[in-house]
């Protein structure tokens, strides 16, 4: 299993391949389309990530020392962004997720590119994933 750092390096590689933001968005959209859909029952208000402009549902489970993540969104770009985060964080040790530095978001330019509202949404998704990791024993 590749580490969080290795996963980020792969994403950076993928995105540096594209010069145009339309192509980067296309890649994000494809990642969103490839993300397994969440069960309709899981799309409830309890799993809604607060602070996103579109609706984003995030589900997490503890498996051993690791955290599993699933997500869905009503808008595909938001879904693509959460898919990238899941790609990096899913099935990683809770401790690693809680402590991780997501430098790839800056490297691929996403952080600077998003409007303030959308950047806040991205931060809310990351915060929510880290909260789950902490709750699942990633604190120590």
């Amino acid at each position: 299993m590749p580490t969080i750092a290795e996963k980020q390096a792969v994403l950076i590689d993928e995105f540096t391949f594209f010069d145009e933001w339309m192509d980067k968005y296309n890649h994000i959209i494809e990642m969103g389309k490839a993300l397994p859909v969440l069960d309709e029952l899981d799309k409830n208000d309890d799993l809604l990530v607060q602070g996103c402009q579109s609706k984003v549902w995030l589900k997490a489970e503890k498996q051993g020392d690791c955290v599993r993540f699933w997500a869905d969104a009503d808008a595909i770009i938001a879904k693509g962004i959460v898919a990238m985060l899941i790609d990096v964080f899913d099935n990683q040790p809770a401790k690693e997720v809680a402590a991780a530095d997501l430098g790839f978001l800056e490297e691929i330019g996403l952080k600077d590119h998003l409007s303030p509202t959308r950047a806040n949404g991205l931060m809310s998704m990351i915060k929510q994933m880290k909260f789950y990791a902490l709750a699942f024993g990633g604190a120590n």
């Binding site: 339309m22 968005y25 009503d74 595909i76 770009i77």
Partner: peptide, 13 residues
């Protein structure tokens, strides 16, 4: 399509 996605991709153009 979702209107937010349309808005982002239109802005890119």
């Amino acid at each position: 399509t979702h209107p937010y996605d349309l808005g982002v991709l239109l802005d890119q153009q």
